[in-house]
């Protein structure tokens, strides 16, 4: 058994490490977006890469999201492997035309002739009082686009592993990061590794209830888990990571074991990832459920600026504890 040597870094550094390794490995891999080059990225994910790889491989673009995303798609169709950064994922609403029509469907409409090995990535989620527009969770909008995969990273380890996997995928992949997770610290292996895009991650095995979550909510769930354990509960916590497609194997096995499901997400309730998860679980594992699936989401509310109001739009650990207690009566 070889000794795994590790090094400690922050999540945004892990993203950069994965990106850098893939750029070294394949000269067709390049980055484009607003302030990704000289500025080093709004959250420093691409800091230093422009000096190392040059201004064409780390392309600072004008502020024209729909067009530079479409440019990335055209480049992907003709042999390159672009990584398009949304400075904030919310900005990519402007690029919805390109992401939906060309990223998602063009492989199909072309009869399979053209592939779009593109990664679209960037920070989303509710931050520290960023206001309604900069606090959006676009995964619920993008999830109904056919032909696209979506993953959400939550730790330095899976951030690097998912970045590498997304870049190597022949499918268009949207990689969701979170504004408040960039400075998470972790010791990750020195040796090369890659995560599986389609797999969920078992965070904490347990028997009593399955808690499905992703991105930042994983940490609220784990905070709640401490309280729950002290109260004698044994929650199983799964970070679904793959928002589309769902890992029905890991989720299913957990449901068959615990028979109770709680979903904790940052999406707004209507049409969120949670709503799709409920549908998938009900369709596939309804017989194993002893109680209706519970889902804690943000309300359908534009994220308020005021801190006290903002906090109430994000599921808090205490709510998770209460939900589990109710679910496990």
């Amino acid at each position: 058994m070889s000794i795994i040597t590790r090094h400690e870094l922050l999540l945004f550094e892990a993203l950069r490490e994965g990106l850098e390794e893939e750029m070294e490995r394949d000269p067709r891999v390049y980055v484009m977006g607003e302030d990704v080059g000289h500025y080093g990225g709004s959250y420093k994910v691409t800091k230093g890469l422009a000096t190392k790889f040059g201004d064409l491989r780390v392309l600072d673009t004008p502020i024209a999201e729909n067009s530079f995303t479409g440019m990335g798609i055209g480049a992907a169709m003709t042999g390159l492997r672009p990584i398009v950064e949304g400075m904030n994922m919310g900005f990519l609403l402007l690029a919805f035309n390109q992401i939906s029509n060309n990223c998602g469907m063009l492989h199909y409409t072309s009869g399979g002739q053209f592939t779009i090995p593109i990664v679209i990535r960037g920070p989303g989620g509710v931050g520290r009082q960023l206001g309604a527009e900069h606090s959006q969770r676009l995964e619920s909008y993008f999830q109904s686009i056919p032909g696209i995969q979506m993953v959400a990273c939550s730790t330095p380890y899976n951030a690097k592993g998912l970045m590498k996997a997304a870049i190597r995928s022949e499918n268009p992949v949207i990689l969701f990061e979170h504004v408040l997770l960039y400075n998470l610290k972790e010791r990750i292996p020195d040796e090369d590794y890659i995560c599986n895009l389609e797999e969920a991650e078992m965070v904490r095995p347990g028997e009593h209830v399955t808690i499905l979550t992703y991105s930042r909510m994983r940490y609220h769930v784990m905070q709640a888990a401490k309280t729950l354990v002290n109260k004698g509960y044994d929650p199983e916590v799964i970070d679904i990571r793959s928002l589309k497609p769902f890992d029905l194997y890991t989720i299913g096995n957990s449901v068959k074991k615990t028979h109770r499901v709680l979903i904790v997400e940052e999406c707004m309730r209507t049409g969120g990832i949670g709503a799709s998860l409920i549908a998938a679980i009900t369709e596939n594992f309804n017989d194993y459920l002893d109680a209706p699936i519970m889902c804690l989401s943000s309300q359908d509310v534009p994220t308020p600026y005021a801190g006290t109001l903002e906090e109430w739009t994000v599921v808090q650990p205490a709510q998770i504890v209460a939900a589990v207690e109710q679910l496990c009566q």
Binding site: H107, Y249, G252
Partner: peptide, 15 residues
């Protein structure tokens, strides 16, 4: 066919 270049994009099933 042709929904995904890599059909793994349909995901992992219950089995």
């Amino acid at each position: 066919e042709n929904v995904f270049a890599d059909p793994k994009g349909f995901g992992i099933g219950p089995d």
